[in-house]
């Protein structure tokens, strides 16, 4: 296949154009993705999320530089929000990634969310397929600035970093509660700023409070199944010890603007990666990812078919509900009969 050959041969322009077609949901992109899919599964996907202004882009820049020093190629997908009013967007993540430009082992693509609400764009997963086939060994996915509900990244990435910073105020804890569940590694960036210790303490306390399952032997296995992070307050795992069923979420402190703490952060990421493989969680999650992707695709497709088949029925049904002649549940039953 043409697109496969072009990507495998390292044609960056072909890659960039294919990504545009994927983003624009073009029919050519569908065909290309079908041909590309068998070549995927080689890249390691690292998700980076957190509130706006915590330093995600700067951290991604440093993480990528560290990978490059190890001789690995890196692709970065940086997502920023689209305006709900005009559909326009300012994609500014490249500003913090100047160090990487000009490096042929790095490919950076900015994506607008285009109405998607989960912190990623609808097409992000498919764009990663293309980058994976193009041979990038590590793919870093930076979400838009996230609050509580933007948790799609956890379904896509193999390891998810949640980035925090001191000085976000006492409401910091409120934010934590929403994203705790998806963090495989917590990062307190800007750790040289006043309040960093307090932020680490708050996170540690929240982790212990939120998921005390590790105190109950039976609950621990259940928690592992649901990928609940537990007990960051406990000491780091002994590499010689047998594999813990539950991943202990570490808290890493970084100063991304100075490149501090990056190597320690990478080793925490590597430990998570190893733990996922050894504990079987990786295979388990791969399966869940595919299940959920299929579920979403089938839902979209069935609905699209239903809409095109139902003709005027749907409009009449809406009117019937507006007229209070029918309730929505009855209408659905009738429409699907």
């Amino acid at each position: 296949m043409n697109s496969v050959d072009a990507l495998l041969s390292g044609d960056r322009r072909a890659l960039a154009r294919l990504i545009t077609q994927i983003e624009n949901n073009r029919p050519e992109a569908r065909a290309a993705l079908a041909a590309l899919y068998p070549h995927t599964g080689r890249a390691y996907l690292l998700g980076v999320t957190g509130a706006p202004g915590t330093g995600k882009s700067t951290l991604v820049n440093e993480l990528a530089k560290a990978r490059r020093r190890d001789g690995q190629t890196v692709a970065i997908v940086a997502v920023d929000p689209s305006s709900p009013f005009t559909g326009g967007a300012i994609l500014g993540d490249r500003i913090r990634m100047r160090d990487l430009s000009g490096d042929p082992g790095v490919f950076i693509r900015s994506m607008a969310t285009r109405g998607s609400l989960g912190g990623l764009a609808r097409a992000t997963a498919d764009v990663i397929v293309a980058l994976d086939v193009a041979g990038y060994q590590t793919i870093i996915i930076e979400t838009e600035g996230a609050g509580q509900a933007e948790v799609d990244i956890a379904q896509l990435a193999h390891t998810t970093l949640v980035v925090e910073a001191p000085g976000l105020g006492d409401d910091v804890q409120a934010i934590k509660a929403g994203i705790l569940e998806i963090a495989d590694v917590l990062v307190v960036n800007k750790a040289d700023q006043p309040g960093a210790d307090a932020a680490v303490r708050a996170l540690r306390g929240m982790l212990n409070l939120a998921h005390p399952a590790s105190r109950f032997p039976g609950a621990a296995a259940a928690a592992a199944h649901h990928r609940r992070p537990v007990g960051a307050g406990s000491p780091p795992p002994d590499p010689a010890a047998p594999v813990e069923p539950v991943w202990q979420v570490p808290i890493c402190e970084t100063v991304a603007t100075e490149g501090k703490g990056i190597d320690a952060l990478w080793s925490a990421i590597e430990r998570h990666r190893e733990h996922q493989r050894a504990s079987g969680a990786f295979a388990h999650w791969q399966r869940i990812r595919v299940e959920r992707q299929l579920e979403a695709l089938i839902r979209d497709e069935l609905y699209a078919r239903f809409v095109s088949a139902s003709g005027e029925q749907l409009g009449q049904a809406i009117q019937a509900i507006l007229n209070r002649a029918r309730d929505p549940y009855t209408v659905v039953e009738e429409l699907l009969r």
Partner: peptide, 14 residues
């Protein structure tokens, strides 16, 4: 900003 408001996706590199 103006191009964003015109519905375009603007990559700003600094």
């Amino acid at each position: 900003r103006a191009l964003r408001d015109a519905g375009m996706e603007v990559i700003y590199t600094g």
